[in-house]
Amino acid sequence: MSKTGVFIETTDQEIKQSVFGVISAAAAGGGEVTGFLLDGRADKYKDQLAACGVTELVALEAKDIDFSKSPQATGEALAKGATDFGISALLGVSSPTGNDVLARAAMALKAPLALDCMDVDFTANTVKKSHFSGKAVATLEMTGALFVCGIRPNSFEAVESPVTIKITPHTVEVENSDAIIVTEVQAADSSRKDLTEATVIISGGRPMASSDNFKILDECARKLDAVVGASRAAVDAGYAPHSMQVGQTGKIVSPKLYIGCGLSGSVQHFAGMKTSKVIVAINTDKDAPIFTKSDYGIIGDLFEVVPALTKELEKQG
């Protein structure tokens, strides 16, 4: 049986939520799923991983190397693991870290690579991904014994599929180079959560008019368990940090629900969120282009509609 490898990305000693969807995609592909872990906490994660179908968890280690400081060693270790365990497709989440590690692994493996994929077919060895800022979907065919693929967060639902899991510590030899070193990780200045993993997002555009006004979105977000995003116009005007920008030159997101408040509906903004399941637009202008690309529209002032929505959610509990 073919074996699919999944890079188990962790942050702050937790498995990244979207990793589970990737595991489910791998399990649905028919092969056995082997997880590759680089943070050494196999015991902590094993039950969660077994629950969604990981049959073997490979805990990679390399002598004298701190993977958190060496992205190159991380990629090379993952590549060695994939080779040593006979993997035919290596998957991970297309997050900033996931993309970086997968790309470095693919280079070490001299393997084909596709990042930010929305679908993958393990029989045909094809993936589907966006081209032209979300205006087209490309099918790419990968050749060779092994391909590497990053999956856009939230592209696959995590499904339970319990199996028994085996933990295999595995030491690999990789070069201990100081050509590239992570010297520090600076936490985000805001308390806001990560957009790319969010299942509900509420975003504000240019008419937010100040960073203070984003509070009304924060309040609504708390009720919706949502993360707050922004358009580039709002970011460039200084109302929100760049890390909140959704779109072509910002974050690519795929939540279940996207509520756009005061967005015109630009191609570049939609490039980052059009794969959302449901899009709701709030805009004062009935002719705003966003109303032609959303599922539900509310013609109204966001400063009235958003607080009313917050209240309604509060009422319904």
Partner: peptide, 19 residues
């Protein structure tokens, strides 16, 4: 190693249901 097999246009949503 990686060949573009096909391109398909993405279907835009049609008009929003206005509440």
């Amino acid at each position: 190693q990686c060949r573009l097999k096909s391109l398909e246009p993405v279907q835009e949503r049609s008009n929003a249901k206005i509440l």
